[in-house]
């Protein structure tokens, strides 16, 4: 088994990395909101799930792909994928903003008990998932194949499948754009200011509601992109995938140190790899258990995650 593992190590690593980037992007949704509001956005998992459906709608209903269609190639493929990405991001981004308006804003402004927003989030999560369940008749929804998952060749013995490669490259680009956004733009700076000290930021004239909506939007956009990548990689979705992926991504966020953007990145990557390797040895049914055991061990020794908290990395 070990030899087998070593043979496949490189290829597993590529698969783990692409799964990792899906986690990274969802984890960003959790981490951004946590950084600003110190609150677990429990319903982010459903935001992700709706993102996956947006991609399928574009492929199936906008471009009319069916299970029998020929996969697209060349520029047309690029065009379709790009539209899917945009659609998923928009769907999730908008949903995320609405979520905050409906489920959190009132509670936040009233500053009521700490658990109330979380319960409200759980309620929203149930509503969103159930709504989709009714729409889809509790069934898995397959995605027609838009793209041949051909191999692009090998790299240090790793088979580079097209979908994995796209996810890794595009995921990295998205992550870099997000970090730049947070570092350089006005909204990004305001987000960091609020996450460091809400009261001080308010005194400096930051419009808190605007910043919070912006945070949910950005988190939602990233989570939506993950939805697109998920469909690209697994070619199906269902009303209940949010839960599993959401929990894993949240674990990733905590692993890296929730509230910390860089932490979401490393947490997601580490978790994606770990899960892939562990599944190889133990079978996929134990992967959730592995993930949680790792989490417990990490938190036991580093209670604030590996990279600590806060969106800025340098808090005294």
């Amino acid at each position: 088994m070990l030899n087998n593992f070593l043979d496949q190590f490189a290829t597993l690593t590529v698969g783990g990395l692409s799964l990792g980037f899906i986690y990274v992007l969802i984890a960003l949704g959790y981490t951004m909101v946590y950084g600003v509001l110190r609150m677990i956005n429990f319903a982010n998992s459903e935001v992700f799930m709706y993102g996956t459906f947006a991609t399928i709608i574009v492929i199936r209903d906008l471009f009319g792909f069916t299970q029998q269609s020929e996969p697209a190639t060349g520029f047309r493929l690029f065009y379709i994928l790009f539209l899917c990405l945009v659609a998923s991001m928009l769907m999730s981004g908008i949903l995320s903003i609405l979520l905050e308006l409906v489920a959190y804003r009132r509670l936040r402004n009233r500053g009521s008990n700490k658990l109330a927003p979380l319960i409200s989030a759980i309620g929203m999560s149930i509503v969103l998932a159930e709504f989709m369940r009714i729409l889809t008749d509790s069934r898995y929804v397959g995605s027609p194949r838009v793209m041949e998952k051909k191999s692009l060749g090998t790299f240090f013995g790793a088979e580079l499948r097209l979908d994995n490669t796209i996810i890794i490259v595009a995921g990295l680009l998205l992550f870099i754009s997000l970090s730049q956004f947070v570092q350089r733009t006005r909204l990004g700076k305001a987000i960091r200011a609020v996450s460091m000290n809400e009261d001080a930021a308010k005194l400096m004239g930051v419009n808190l509601n605007f910043v919070v909506s912006g945070t949910f939007l950005v988190g939602g956009l990233m989570t939506g992109a993950a939805g697109f990548f998920y469909v690209l990689k697994y070619e199906n979705t269902s009303f209940n995938i949010g839960f599993e992926l959401g929990i894993a991504a949240f674990t990733a966020a905590i692993l890296g140190g929730i509230g910390n953007i860089k932490g979401a990145f490393y947490g997601g990557i580490v978790l994606g790899l770990l899960e892939t390797y562990a599944s190889f040895f133990l079978g996929t049914q134990w992967k959730a258990v592995t993930v949680f055991i790792v989490l417990v061990v990490v938190l036991y020794f580093r209670p604030n995650g590996v990279f600590g908290e806060a969106i800025t990395q340098t808090r005294a």
Partner: peptide
Amino acid sequence: DARLLVFGAVLVLMMNLRPD
């Protein structure tokens, strides 16, 4: 079919109207 959905909505409403 919609009873869980209603249940979720009740939770949200409840938290917003009577968080305690």
